[in-house]
């Protein structure tokens, strides 16, 4: 496994196959928690945190249990349960150990349970095993973690950029009919077109 492979996985997940603008996953927090930059940063950090841990656990569960015992067809429901349990556990852990971290991240954690971007990354990781013919467990795990880091950073980049634009729009003279959600959706569409320009660089 070369460094190039991991770097490619991170850049590809972050910019080219961006989870929000290209795969249309995680649209709910993208539109719902992007009114303020501070909230967007908190949400991005929480998503990145949960995405990395859940990718490691779901990949391990798939490789060592589901695939081994011939039951990969229950992967989706198993991953949903793993992510939901993980979110509960992480929230409890942060509540007990770090009040400052809970203040900045903890309030967004329950929203992550229903964030399909997390499930999408977990499902994508197991598809990678077959597409890239990854044989060994550790190689696959490292690719899965690289993809999770890239996807989480890509999610953060887009939601932060979008929230910054929305903050500017609040102070702009927007026609009454376009105020609020309509102009936000137009901005999201333009951002998606802009990111299409990155397709094919790898």
């Amino acid at each position: 496994m070369s460094f190039t492979l991991f770097a490619t996985a991170i850049i590809s997940a972050m910019l080219i196959n961006n989870v929000i603008l290209m795969q249309f996953l995680g649209i709910c927090p993208f539109l719902g928690v992007s009114k303020k930059s501070s909230a967007a940063i908190g949400m991005s950090a929480a998503v990145l945190f949960v995405m990395i841990i859940s990718s490691a656990i779901t990949y391990t569960l798939y490789d060592l249990v589901l695939y081994k015992y011939g039951i990969p067809y229950i992967s989706t429901i198993a991953f949903i349960l793993v992510i939901a349990s993980l979110v509960q556990f992480v929230e409890m852990f942060i509540k007990k150990t770090s009040k400052s971290l809970y203040k900045s991240l903890g309030i967004y954690l329950p929203l992550i349970t229903t964030n399909c971007a997390i499930l999408g990354v977990s499902e994508g990781n197991i598809t990678n095993i077959w597409v890239n013919h990854i044989g060994d467990y550790w190689g696959g795990l490292l690719i899965a973690l690289s993809t999770a880091v890239g996807t989480g950073l890509g999610f953060g980049l887009i939601i932060f950029a979008f929230s910054s634009i929305r903050e500017k729009l609040e102070a702009s003279d927007v026609p009454a009919a376009w105020k609020g959600v309509p102009i936000s959706l137009v901005v999201a569409g333009i951002m998606s077109l802009a990111f299409l320009g990155l397709a094919g660089i790898i």
Binding site: L81, S85, M92, K95, K99, Y102
Partner: peptide
């Protein structure tokens, strides 16, 4: 029985973590 055991186990894990999380109080300043 393997899928039933796996799903059942994960459901039990979820119920356990949910219960523990609900039992943990939110810090006052938060």
């Amino acid at each position: 029985w393997i899928p039933i055991v796996v799903i059942g186990g994960l459901v039990l894990v979820y119920i356990g973590t949910y219960y523990l999380n609900k039992k943990t109080p939110i810090p006052d300043e938060c």
